[in-house]
Design a binder for these strands. Sequence first.
DNA 1: CACATATGTTAAACTAGATTACTATTATTT
DNA 2: AAATAATAGTAATCTAGTTTAACATATGTG
Lengths: 194, 194
Amino acid sequence: MLAQPLLDYINKFVSLTEKEQNFIASKVVYRKYLKGQYIVQEGDVCKYQGFIVSGCTKTFYVDDNGQEHIIIFAIENWWTADIGSYITQTSADYNVQCIENTEMIQIPFDVREELFEEVPKLERFFRMIIEKGFIASQKRIVRNFSLSAKERYLIFKQSYPKIEKRIPQYMLASYLGITKEFLSKIKSKLILER
Amino acid sequence: MLAQPLLDYINKFVSLTEKEQNFIASKVVYRKYLKGQYIVQEGDVCKYQGFIVSGCTKTFYVDDNGQEHIIIFAIENWWTADIGSYITQTSADYNVQCIENTEMIQIPFDVREELFEEVPKLERFFRMIIEKGFIASQKRIVRNFSLSAKERYLIFKQSYPKIEKRIPQYMLASYLGITKEFLSKIKSKLILER
DNA sequence: CACATATGTTAAACTAGATTACTATTATTT
DNA sequence: AAATAATAGTAATCTAGTTTAACATATGTG
């Protein structure tokens, strides 16, 4: 079944009955996107929270000077959305774009409440998922304040070696909050140091 | 009743029955702290999630150079804890300290599951609360990347005028991720510009 | 294949913000 | 009221990271 990867994932946190699994499977949407396609565009309302089955997305923000700032990458078994826009159904601040061909299982906003009502365990599941996200987000704020760009680069490399190999350097620079030129400098220095 | 401010707050998100309110009230702990007291210390396990009735706390991190980085302030009707430590019951990365005499209503970790079991609505409530926190945290990451220190200062002033008036400037500088000297420079420039 | 478009590197000049160090106010305590 | 500690301001010098601009190398695409 197309929803299986999502059900497997949820079952790691709460245990679903057969019936609950079928209900969830009947409400979610399996969908494929091509590299370059947008899942959310700034200004639109984010209609789906997406669970990535395969592929990779970037969530980014374009500032007043036209500069792109990548907030987060997402790969297999991660969630992706403009969560602020999705939850409050207001216009999105961020863009979500596929940087590889991507298969997702989406939870449309208009079935969300229905899912919670029919499967209250999902309240718990999503609470746990978002707790994880919040903790990671706070850690990132601290790191951005207390670590140098070089240290942040090394931590990213160590934490997400899979992602580092899949994305172009200029996107990583954007995620780290530095220019691509400076990332290039960091890398060449690190090679010399070895 | 001492738990009333918390019950009122929860009732804004989900509606509790009399019985549920009594149950919650019987499980939470009302407590007073003096200015300067620690609620959580780095290395300890965070035992409580606290709802502030009155007062003000700062959550901060001390980096390898001994520098203090304030992650967040909390005032009346806000929650405070090292949420990562509390949820996973592992040792805290952060310190939470009162910067005013503070009254709190605390949810001890060891009654948390019991509360969720007896009042499943709380799963929903805490999901909603943490969603809000996560969205704010993401916004802060974006701002730190795309805005200058001056802009961040002006946004803080505008967003939390109450907090700005209650805290010393050097703590605000720490929260903004700059030195107190540079904040002083920003402020004097702003005065000249007017 | 050739041409375009996306990606990566290097280096010089520049700037936001840090560091250091000294002075000026406020609070708090005795 | 004097003394001490906590808070705030100023200014010179320094540095991590930016900007600009030129060049190099992939990778696709008609």
